[in-house]
Design a protein around this nucleic acid. Structure first.
Length: 537
DNA sequence: GCCGTTTTCGGCCCGACTGTTTTCAGTCG
């Protein structure tokens, strides 16, 4: 069980308690425990109770509950509240725009206990009867139910990555002589998936529970949907290639050729396309200028851009973060804490900014030749302005501009806000351009062509936020960014040490989009990165 | 329930917006 899952249990507990009217500060404590625990990169279950108690926000009672989780994967207080709260209500609470107070009204006053009932009630204008509810909220609830149901049976790649490695291990144990390979979207490292797919040259599992699936057999293994494809040893590579799939363009070319017996996938693809196309690049629409050797890979990234420290809402000091970057072999590190408007994230006052600059200068003397750059993740305000004066902004090595607040915008408002920020002479990188959180928040609407055109016109680099919940910009927009010679920066947005390694998810997304090393900002070594810093706009 | 003392009790992240009100509660990041 991950820290995030444990944290979510406390958050759910807080919400359920709120539905049942318990002391609001007790509720807040559980909600705070959620905020504290979800960010941690140490493993709670491997720590002693005493160690867990030292975490700010965790006292004797919550530490005891974590002990219970160690033994039983749950805890009594949580199970008690679960028993008192219908499953449907626990889903309804996940709908954006509905907090505990509103859910309580829906549940108690309308007697609604499931998402289906809620949708029906919205269509019948039942919500309008409730105090504090209006047309706009009702419309928003309908839209958000649709978003939620569309994402219901989808998984984030890192989640399935853990599951897949466990399953792979047991499949190999059961079938020591078989050839077994992941295929389909998991092989391509697609960020959001609905299943795992596996090819093998023997029947891996004997079961009556299989259901037929295109060219394969389908089964839930440990609750996870898996599709099995079976091939002879001689046709294994063909099956692997065909089940991996690709864009319509890719598949039409592949399907016109015939796959020779005993040929490898590499040989086949090279003969058909005249070059190797890695699995993750097969959803591109064109391979005219494609050269797999030019793509970013795990060794291309030389510096870690966009990170947070204890100055704002990060968990580690600048020194600790920098040392971790050095340990991982990077040449430089860009610290971009939150700016003053982000009060919920402890955004930096001007005094704190100056204090941080002095600390960075000190550390740079000590850690040379490694270099830490002074940056800020400046909030883009409602009108598109950044939230420090020019004399402060001008003193950062680089400014990342991101939207964090008031995400509920129509296309015009969002584009005006973004383009004003892109045109700001101090903006060097546009952070997570859509604000989406995969499977949980759609993000505001963006016209990507206009956005990238504006970045091109203003020399602004676009971020590919490597947090696996964001992966924003989406890989599908990289081709156009490259066409317009807009650089992409693959940034972990790390709030703790471990998250620095999220860069790998960004690299995967970048490769799916065909990003070349030469079009990526932080493939630059320190020397060239400094040239870019000094070039200004 | 947790924290931090002004240490055994009182206060709890917070600012802004939005839709609903007719002055503000609820939600979000």
């Amino acid at each position: 069980m991950t820290n995030r899952e444990i944290a979510s249990m406390f958050n759910e507990l807080a919400v359920m308690l709120e539905l049942h009217e318990v002391n609001e500060f007790k509720i807040k404590t559980y909600a705070n425990a959620y905020l504290a625990l979800r960010k941690l990169d140490i493993n709670l279950l491997e720590q002693s109770k005493e160690e867990n108690k030292t975490i700010r926000g965790i006292g004797a009672s919550i530490a005891d509950k974590i002990e219970e989780i160690k033994l039983t994967s749950t805890f009594a207080a949580y199970e008690e509240m679960k028993a008192k709260t219908p499953e449907g209500i626990r889903q309804i609470i996940k709908i954006k725009g509905l907090g505990p107070k509103k859910v309580k009204a829906i549940w108690r006053d309308l007697g609604i206990e499931s998402i289906g009932e809620l949708l029906y009630a919205c269509q019948e204008n039942q919500l309008l009867k409730l105090k504090g509810f209006g047309q706009k909220l009702q419309d928003e609830v309908i839209a958000n139910i649709q978003f939620l149901t569309a994402n219901q049976h989808l998984y984030l790649f890192p989640h399935l990555e853990i599951v897949a490695s466990e399953i792979y291990k047991s499949l190999v144990e059961l079938n020591p002589n078989a050839r077994i390979e992941w295929t389909g979207e998991f092989r391509k490292r697609v960020q959001v998936l609905d299943k795992l797919e596996v090819v093998s040259d023997v029947q891996l599992i004997k079961s009556d529970a299989f259901t037929p699936h295109t060219n394969g057999h389908f089964l839930y293994l440990d609750r996870y949907p898996i599709c099995f494809y079976h091939a002879d040893t001689s046709s294994f590579e063909k099956e692997l290639c065909l089940s991996t799939l690709g864009s319509d363009e890719f598949m039409s070319i592949v399907n016109q050729a015939s796959f020779p017996d005993n040929a490898t996938e590499l040989e086949f693809i090279q003969s058909v396309f005249g070059k190797w196309i890695p699995a993750e690049c097969r959803d591109l629409s064109s391979w005219n200028d494609f050269n797999a050797d030019l793509l970013v890979d795990d060794h291309s990234i030389k510096g870690v851009v966009h990170n947070h420290s204890t100055y704002s809402d990060g968990l580690y000091s600048i020194r600790e973060m920098a040392l971790e970057c050095i340990r991982l072999g990077y040449e430089y590190f860009v610290i971009s804490d939150h700016s003053k408007t982000a009060s919920y994230a402890n955004g930096l006052s001007i005094e704190h900014v100056e204090m941080q600059w002095r600390e960075i200068e000190q550390l740079n003397k000590e850690l040379s030749p490694f270099k830490i750059f002074k940056s800020i993740e400046s909030d883009i305000l409602g009108n598109g302005d950044l939230d420090y004066d020019e004399d402060i902004l001008s003193q950062f090595d680089l400014v990342i501009a991101s939207i964090h607040q008031n995400l509920n915008m129509d296309l015009d408002k969002a584009m005006n806000r973004l383009i004003t920020a892109i045109e700001n002479p101090f903006t060097r990188i546009l952070g997570h351009p859509t604000g989406r959180l995969l499977l949980s928040r759609k993000g505001y609407p963006v016209d990507f062509k206009k956005l990238i055109d504006a970045c091109a016109a203003n020399g602004v680099v676009v971020e590919l936020n490597a947090n696996p919940y964001r992966l924003d910009i989406d890989s599908t927009h990289i081709e156009y960014a490259q066409e317009r010679q807009v650089l992409v920066s693959i940034n972990p947005d790390a709030h703790n040490l471990k998250a620095i390694q999220d860069i790998k998810y960004g690299i995967q997304a970048a490769r799916r989009g065909g990003l070349r090393k030469s079009n990526c900002l932080n493939t630059n070594n320190l020397e060239n990165f400094e040239v870019w810093i000094k070039s200004k706009k």
